[in-house]
């Protein structure tokens, strides 16, 4: 971190992300969880901005905080239920999970503190968008195309499973 302000911003954003993520999993009402999820995504976008990745931050807000959360709300809306009070069931096995995850977190933190991270040392380009297209369509063309196939398969599969349930409901 360059200066005290970016450090402060990072600490605030990290607190925001962790706090809202905890609320997402512990709140009983699914709609409230989705709202806190939006806060979490915006916090992640903030950390991207701190790293000078402005395009990724914008995509994070547009796609995750915007589109993904709206789809989640639609999903909640279309599933019929009498009330929203216990729509997000939670398994309170904190006694087991908390020490496990906490221990893992501490171990990884210690290992990170001990090891030397590889830093590229290059300046961040002033325009981050222009460099993306050549990267996607030259160096990463195979993963890029595989991702396209992956989305096609996921889409047709989701349609197939949903269509089947509907036909079944009408039949019986």
């Amino acid at each position: 971190m360059d200066n005290v302000y970016s450090l402060l911003a990072f600490v605030l954003l990290a607190g925001m992300i962790l706090g809202s993520a905890l609320l997402v999993v512990t709140l009983r009402n699914l709609v409230h969880s989705v709202l806190w999820l939006i806060v979490m995504f915006i916090g992640v976008a903030g950390t991207f901005l701190l790293l000078n990745a402005d395009f990724v931050a914008a995509v994070q807000v547009l796609v995750y905080a915007g589109a993904v959360c709206i789809m989640l709300v639609f999903g909640v809306m279309l599933v019929q239920r009498p009330n929203m009070e216990h729509s997000n069931p939670i398994n309170w096995r904190f006694k087991l999970a908390a020490p496990l995850v906490g221990g893992l977190f501490i171990v990884i933190g210690l290992l990170t503190a001990k090891s030397q991270l590889v830093v590229s040392g290059q300046e961040v380009p002033a325009q981050t968008v222009q460099a993306l297209a050549p990267i996607l369509l030259n160096d990463f063309v195979i993963p890029f195309e595989v991702a396209a196939i992956l989305l096609t398969v996921a889409l047709t599969g989701a349609l197939l499973l949903v269509k089947e349930v509907k036909a079944n409901g009408n039949g019986s």
């Binding site: 195979i142 595989v146 991702a147 196939i149 992956l150 398969v153 599969g157 499973l161 089947e164």
Partner: peptide
């Protein structure tokens, strides 16, 4: 990245196939 996307392509196809008998 290629490895991860390959794993995902395989896995998502398998999720669909495993749940295929949705009755």
């Amino acid at each position: 990245i290629s490895l991860y996307l390959g794993i995902e392509l395989m896995t998502i196809s398998f999720i669909i196939l495993v749940a295929f008998r949705s009755q």
